[in-house]
Amino acid sequence: MTSLLFLIPIALFLGLLALAGFFWSLRNGQYEDMDGSATRFLHDDDRPLPAAPSAR
C-alpha cells in the first residue's frame, strides 16, 4: 500500500500537467479557428506562408 503514497501524487501531477497544457493552448488561441486549421496544413508546402503569428 505504501506504493500509493508516491503513485497517486505522480498520477495527479501528470493529470495537472495535461490540464496546464490545455490552459496554455486555450490562452494561445489554438481553438480560435478550428475550420481554418483543419485545411491550412494542406496548403502549407512549397510556398512559404506569411510569418507565424506573433505571440500575444
Binding site: E32, D33, M34, D35, G36, T39, R47, P48, L49, P50, A51, P53, S54
Partner: peptide, 18 residues
C-alpha cells in the same frame, strides 16, 4: 494570406476561417 504576404511591409495577414 499568400497575396498579402507578397506586399511590402506586411508582417502578418491571417484569416480566421471560423
Amino acid at each position: 494570406e499568400a497575396a498579402l504576404a507578397r506586399r511590402p511591409g506586411v508582417v502578418e495577414g491571417r484569416v480566421n476561417l471560423t
